[in-house]
């Protein structure tokens, strides 16, 4: 099956860079599957799991806490704020994060919709992390 170059980078390091058949991204407006020859796109990501398919099977599952993806017909680059392989997620850490995010959400000044969106996104991303940790 045809492949395209998939890259996943976080500010800390380059996590993945190889040819894959399909990648499913948690785009801000819903899950999005990327196949070779996809139309050029730049999408924002929410917290969720990136699933990479090679040889007809899902070979990598990584949690990202948000970020961006640039898709071109021959390449897909994900700039993640933070990325961890699902197997390495710790449920306890994820739950602490949810608590922190909830505290930040209740404490945050709700005076502007932008600020609310930021804290809301943080909370949702933390919840997605707990879900991912549970599923692993």
């Amino acid at each position: 099956m045809a492949t395209f170059q998939f890259e996943l980078v976080s500010p800390q390091k380059l996590l993945l860079s190889r040819a894959v058949e399909m990648a499913v991204l948690p785009a801000a407006e819903g899950e999005m599957g990327v196949l070779p020859g996809h139309a050029p796109m730049i999408v924002a990501l929410r917290g969720g799991i990136i699933a990479v398919t090679e040889g007809g099977q899902v070979t990598e599952r990584l949690f990202v806490a948000g970020g961006f993806a640039e898709v071109t017909p021959g390449r897909c680059t994900v700039l993640a704020d933070e990325a961890t392989p699902v197997a390495q997620l710790s449920r306890a850490a994820a739950e602490t994060r949810v608590r922190d995010a909830e505290a930040a959400y209740t404490a945050a000044a709700m005076d502007t919709p932008e600020k609310r969106d930021v804290t809301m996104a943080r909370l949702l991303s933390a919840r997605a992390m707990v879900q991912a940790a549970e599923a692993a």
Binding site: A28, P40, V43
Partner: peptide
């Protein structure tokens, strides 16, 4: 202009720019 943006260009830019600032400082 060939790129499609999801959500809008402005929204992506609004999160991308602070991130870019952070990465430059980093």
């Amino acid at each position: 202009a060939l790129y499609e943006y999801e959500p809008s260009e402005e929204e992506i830019l609004a999160t991308l720019l602070p991130q870019n600032l952070a990465i430059q400082v980093y």
